[in-house]
Design a binder for these strands. Structure first.
Length: 315
DNA sequence: AAGGTTGTTGGTAT
DNA sequence: TATACCAACAACCT
């Protein structure tokens, strides 16, 4: 379940292997996984992106031929591969998407791989493959097919609805924290009646938080996940935003989170969950702060882990 | 074997 | 008009 730290880990790995590489061929195994913005590529100008129709494999492969990867960006949980000639590929991994890089015959890669990393690729979860002039190959695998790639003019990227509405990045330098917090506070105060967990999962309020870092940051902040936003003070919200950044930094340092078979770009495991997670998937274990038993409940339609002693709900 | 799991969208209710 | 809530999406796991 890639959240901000996992997507940033993927971004970093892809950057190392792909920037400067030229695409020689694209193979689309599942047409719904690769969509095309049919707007004319208006070099330099930004146009309203068209809806993304399916069944454009031929057109997509034709456009990608001989394009070079110039830059790889991330915004929230979205990846953006900027190519030459004003084209970009926006990518969302959703729950099970992976970006795996391989050179011919070698067992190295980047991304958020699961079992398929150690198997031969492409496998049955491979939806798209890009071949590069050097012999390197990028595989977009996605077991559940919720993820997508979108090929579009670079200037239209910012108008992808999810990006257009996306809240501030939580991982900012110290000197930018005040403005990030101001935007976060303004956003979250428009959702006073919802639970705090639901609010921080909302990408329009703050970018990049998913189920793991929601539970971990709320535990760090001693806030019960079901607490209504209205009941939480500005000061406590500020502390929560700081803790979101803290748990994400810890995770980045550990190479991200995964429950199984995670191997990152240099072959090491991403073991945030084992090393740092205090509550996520630790139900029935003692709280590391007070010793009470971690519970699992449902909040905002999600499995939610918390300590019933140090995260008391104020009603 | 039915229900849970994940992130986002889109429909409906408030 | 804005916000709240939840089913749907696909495939696998328990």
């Amino acid at each position: 379940m890639p959240e901000l730290p996992e997507v940033e880990t993927v971004r970093h790995g892809l950057e190392k292997f792909l920037v400067g590489e030229k695409i020689t061929r694209a193979v689309i195994f599942n047409e719904k996984s690769f969509l095309l913005d049919n707007t004319e590529n208006s070099q330099g100008k930004s146009a309203k992106p068209e809806i993304f129709p399916e069944n454009n494999a031929a057109k997509i492969t034709q456009i990608l031929e001989n394009k070079e990867v110039v830059k790889i960006r991330r915004r929230g949980k979205m990846l953006i591969l900027d190519l030459s000639e004003n084209w970009s590929i926006a990518a969302h991994l959703k729950m099970t998407g992976q970006m795996v890089v391989r050179s011919s015959g070698e067992n190295w890669g980047a991304g958020h791989p699961n079992e398929s990393f150690v198997a031969d690729l492409p496998d049955r979860t491979t939806r798209v493959a890009l071949d590069f002039a050097s012999g390197t190959r990028l595989f977009f695998n996605d077991q559940r097919k919720f993820g997508w790639l979108k090929l579009m003019p670079t200037n239209n990227i910012a108008q992808i609805p999810l990006l257009e509405k996306m809240g501030p990045e939580p991982l900012v330098d110290q000197e930018n924290f005040a403005s990030t917090y101001a935007i976060f506070l303004k956003n979250i105060r428009r959702h006073q009646k919802t639970s705090i967990k639901s609010a921080i999962l909302n990408q329009e309020i703050v970018a990049g938080v998913g189920n793991i870092y929601a539970d971990e940051s709320l535990w760090s902040s001693k806030i019960h996940p079901a607490t209504k936003v209205a009941k939480i003070s500005d000061t406590a919200l500020k502390n929560l935003l700081k803790n979101i950044a803290k748990v994400m930094r810890e995770s980045l340092a550990a190479g991200g989170s995964t429950m199984k078979n995670y191997v990152n770009a240099d072959g090491s495991r991403g073991d945030y969950l084992e090393k740092f997670a205090k509550v996520f998937r630790r139900e029935n274990s003692p709280c590391p702060r007070c010793g009470a038993t971690i519970q699992k409940i449902r909040v905002a339609g999600r499995g939610t882990h918390f300590c019933p002693k140090c995260q008391i709900e104020r009603k």
